[in-house]
C-alpha cells in the first residue's frame, strides 16, 4: 500500500467512511430478464433503483423493481458497498431512517441467489444481483461488480 492509499484508509477509518472497493471473493452479476429491453446500467442509476428512489429505467422508461438478497448475505454486503457505498451497519441505519420518515419501502428480498434468478427470469420488471456462477441461461447480465467496483456488462 502506498503512502496515499494508507493515508486514505486511515482517514476513512477515522471519519467513518466506507471502504469502497473492498475485494469480493467472486464477481457479482447484475441481472434482468432476457426479454427486458434494458442492456446496461451505471452505478448512479443502480443506486437510485436500490434506494427505491427511482422506479423507471432511464434507457426504456419501463418500470423497474429491485430485488435484494437478505441483509446477512455476503453478496448483499459486496453489492451495498459497491453500489450504495455503505457498509452493512450504515445500510441498516439508512433503512431505519427511511422507514421512520415514511419514505418508500425498501426493495423486496429473495431468500437466496437461485430465487433471485428464478424471479428475475419470470418478470421483466425485476432487477437483481447474484454471484456470477449463479447466472443461468434465462437472464442477462447488465453490469458486474468486480473487485468491489461496478463495471459494464
Amino acid at each position: 500500500m502506498n503512502r496515499r492509499n494508507l493515508l486514505r484508509s486511515l482517514l476513512a477509518a477515522l471519519l467513518g467512511w466506507p471502504e469502497i472497493g473492498s475485494a469480493a471473493d467472486e464477481p457479482v452479476s447484475v441481472i434482468v430478464a432476457k426479454r427486458s429491453k434494458v442492456s446496461a446500467v451505471d452505478r448512479d442509476e443502480l443506486r437510485q433503483i436500490f434506494q427505491t428512489n427511482r422506479t423507471t429505467w432511464s434507457q426504456t422508461g419501463d418500470r423497474v423493481i429491485p430485488l435484494n438478497l437478505p441483509d446477512k448475505n455476503p453478496v448483499r454486503h459486496d453489492f451495498d458497498r459497491a453500489v450504495l457505498g455503505l457498509d452493512p451497519d450504515r445500510v441498516s441505519r439508512y433503512w431505519v431512517d427511511r422507514k421512520i420518515r415514511g419514505d418508500a419501502r425498501p426493495p423486496r428480498t429473495a431468500p437466496n441467489p437461485a430465487a433471485v434468478v428464478r424471479a428475475v427470469e419470470s418478470n421483466p420488471q425485476l432487477v437483481g444481483y447474484v454471484p456470477a456462477s449463479d447466472v443461468s441461461g434465462d437472464v442477462k447480465v447488465i453490469a458486474r461488480i468486480v473487485d468491489g467496483k461496478l463495471q459494464g456488462a
Binding site: L67, A110, P111, N112, A114, A115, V116, A119
Partner: peptide, 9 residues
Amino acid sequence: EVEEQGGEV
C-alpha cells in the same frame, strides 16, 4: 439446505 432457505420472493 436449499429447501430450508425456501425459494419464493
